[in-house]
């Protein structure tokens, strides 16, 4: 086989792999839209579920998902930001940064069910919070922490050294450097990390299934110890009733709503990155 034949073969294999990867995404999306669209209308989005989720809408499921997502984000972002800034700005000569980076990636690789299990034992049982939205928020905040940390760390690491040196040369203290140089230059990392972290929390089922959610009979939590109902739990439970066509349609509709929320967050983070990469909007 000649060198050009080998190159063509490699190109064909790479192209095929790309097409397969794209096809999966298109298939999932088109299947979701095709099957979920009939369930979607204004009432589906604004009405509470009835008849054990078979009828009605997903209003409280949407609210439950948003509560867990936003709550997790609110707890995670300050912790992620503070920990990254501690190692990049305050640790003398970046001591421990590599260990920290390794820990983040390790935490990112932990199966989510383990977060649920440990969270259940610690928050629900040991601290006595029980199966509640707060337990879910705390578990999800730990789970999405590495996603946000990685995004912030990448943004801080990508900041040109010359920016940092210029700030230092102007006599800025580490705290002043953070406020004047690091945060304005790396704020996009915080924002995209938050959005991606929230998207990850929004898509999570296993960790919150037995720690924070209930399927039916739940509306808005009235205390720290109340569970919530979420789109994920709704889809999971309705899918188990596959013989009932109405349940399946509602499950697909819920899936489409969840996908829309997650995609909105991912698209927003993508747009922010795009804006940072091209701040003048393409003008000189």
């Amino acid at each position: 086989m000649s060198r050009s034949d080998k190159e063509n073969l490699l190109l064909a294999l790479l192209g095929l792999a790309t097409i397969v990867a794209c096809c999966f995404l298109v298939l999932i999306l088109s299947g979701l839209i095709y099957r979920g669209w009939p369930a979607l209308d204004w009432e589906f989005l604004t009405a509470p579920a009835s008849d054990f989720g078979r009828q009605g809408g997903v209003f409280y499921q949407i609210l439950g998902t948003l509560i867990l997502m936003i709550g997790a984000g609110l707890i995670s972002v300050p912790i992620a930001l503070a920990s990254v800034l501690f190692f990049t700005e305050f640790s003398p000569q970046k001591t421990g940064l590599e260990t920290y980076r390794t820990l983040i990636f390790t935490l990112n690789g932990v199966p989510t069910i383990l977060f649920g299990l440990v969270g259940y034992l610690f928050f629900s049982q040991f601290l006595g919070i029980g199966v509640s939205w707060l337990t879910g928020v705390l578990i999800l905040s730990i789970m999405i922490l590495p996603t946000i940390q990685v995004s912030i760390l990448e943004a801080v690491s990508a900041m040109p050294l010359s920016y940092r040196e210029t700030g230092m040369a102007l006599g800025l203290t580490p705290e002043q450097l953070i406020r004047s140089v690091v945060l304005p230059q790396c704020g996009y990392g915080v924002l995209t990390g938050t959005l991606l972290g929230c998207a990850r929390a929004g898509g999570e089922t296993a960790a919150i299934m037995f720690t924070a959610t209930a399927f039916s009979g739940v509306q808005l939590p009235e205390s720290l110890h109340d569970p919530v109902t979420t789109l994920q739990t709704h889809i999971l439970t309705l899918s188990q009733e596959a013989i009932d066509p109405q349940s399946v349609t509602t499950a697909w509709g819920s899936g489409l709503v969840l996908m829309a929320i997650v995609f909105t967050l991912i698209a927003a983070s993508y747009l922010i990155r795009l804006r940072v990469a091209n701040p003048d909007g393409g003008q000189a």
């Binding site: 010359s162 040196e165 210029t166 102007l170 800025l172 002043q176 004047s180 701040p279």
Partner: peptide
């Protein structure tokens, strides 16, 4: 520095970048 380092901000903001804090 050898190469001028300008922050992607206005001329005025670049000027007061240090003194605003210090």
């Amino acid at each position: 520095f050898q190469k001028p380092v300008m922050f992607p901000r206005s001329i005025y903001e670049n000027m007061v970048l240090g003194v605003k804090r210090t």
